[in-house]
């Protein structure tokens, strides 16, 4: 049985193990116990307190549990950059045109910006490969069920950074073409620097003038907006939610930064609250859906067979126990993206 719930301090060893396993990448978990513990503490506090979109510095961390073992994690940052500017490159087009010379050139330019500062940010996504197929969608979208239920805690727009291209040795062509020239550090060393310094602190050392893309090596140009193979699943999930990769990229590895309107996301538009009916004999119409309870610090989300009959969501006692709900409580539910899973 798989369940998504808020992280607890006792999850630290499991989170640490995943931080090591998730490897290289500016969007991955910091491979540092103190930092991870700090994140968990922040998350516990966030789940325990009331918050509004205006307060905005909460960090919510979820874990995916499979048969009692923590096998995945995902987070929501209520405000990208917290109280510091959040840096990204915006892809822009300059048209260099001259009527008398009959020239019309479109030039791709990367312009450093703070546009995404303060937006809701989906971050820290990792699932053990053995559980990715079944747990990936549950973990990724459980966050969005939480957002749907606790909408007042979050702002209007949401972003998600996708890890960019790098090879097994940690060489990132985008970093080598841009950041490296300003840091004399390879990508792995910068990763380490993120542990001790905020991303903002490091971003402020990056070139601040627009970068003319045609001047970059082909390898670096080709890496712009590309997504690391390991992020294909999260990318696919978010794309189906309605996230778009168009204008923004990470300043370090050139990976796409996806953006969306929170209220336009599939899970927010196509989920609803229903009263719960617990029954040992589910009608034949029951199918697998993504469900969550309506608690905050005791938030639970799972895949469960649900039959909606006259506005009541019927689930079996096992699912009720898993979700910590009883007859008459409220459930939030949504269909699965992947129809193949419905028959599981």
């Amino acid at each position: 049985m798989m369940i998504v719930r808020p992280v607890r301090t006792s999850d630290l060893p499991a989170i640490e193990r995943m931080a090591v396993a998730s490897g290289i990448g500016v969007t991955s978990l910091p491979n540092n116990r103190d930092k991870l513990y700090e994140r968990i503490r922040q998350s516990v506090t966030a789940f325990e307190h009331e918050a509004t979109a205006e307060t905005g510095t909460e960090y919510y961390m979820f874990v995916l549990e499979a048969d009692g073992e923590v096998v995945g994690t995902a987070s929501i940052n209520a405000s990208a950059g917290f109280d510091e500017p959040f840096y990204s490159y915006r892809s822009e087009t300059f048209v260099h045109a001259s009527r008398p010379l009959k020239v019309h050139n479109r030039i791709h330019v990367l312009n450093m910006c703070h546009d995404l500062t303060g937006m809701v940010q989906l971050a820290g996504f990792y699932v053990d490969p053995a559980h990715a197929a079944r747990g990936g969608e549950l973990l990724s979208r459980a966050r969005l069920l939480f957002v749907a239920a606790e909408r007042e805690r979050f702002g209007r727009r949401v972003i998600a950074e996708m890890q960019g291209i790098h090879d097994d040795a940690g060489q990132s062509p985008f970093w080598n073409a841009i950041g490296r020239r300003f840091f004399n550090m390879d990508f792995l060393q910068v990763e380490q620097a993120f542990v001790s310094h905020s991303k903002t602190f490091i971003a402020e050392l990056m070139p601040s003038y627009p970068i003319y893309v045609p001047l970059l090596e082909d390898e670096a140009q080709n890496a712009i907006g590309q997504i690391h193979p390991a992020f294909e699943q999260p990318f696919r999930l978010l794309t189906r939610e309605g996230f778009e990769a168009d204008n923004y990229i990470d300043i370090f590895d050139g990976g796409a930064v996806l953006t969306a309107e929170l209220d336009r996301l599939h899970t927010l538009e196509h989920s609803c609250d229903c009263p719960v009916g617990v029954t040992a004999s589910l009608p034949a119409s029951a199918n697998l859906r993504l469900v969550s309870n309506r608690r905050v610090s005791q938030f639970k989300a799972a895949l469960a067979r649900v039959a909606v009959v006259e506005g009541v969501a019927y689930i079996n006692p096992d699912s009720a126990r898993l979700l910590d709900v009883v007859d008459g409580d409220t459930l939030r539910l949504t269909d699965l993206h992947d129809p193949a899973q419905k028959s599981l």
Binding site: H96, S98, L101, V103, N105, A177, P207, P210, Y212
Partner: peptide, 19 residues
């Protein structure tokens, strides 16, 4: 016609490192 041509050149600073 140099001014015409110049107006097509990059107006933002160019990092020499990228050349």
């Amino acid at each position: 016609q140099k001014a015409f041509v110049a107006e097509l050149m990059p107006k933002h600073p160019v990092y020499i490192d990228f050349l």
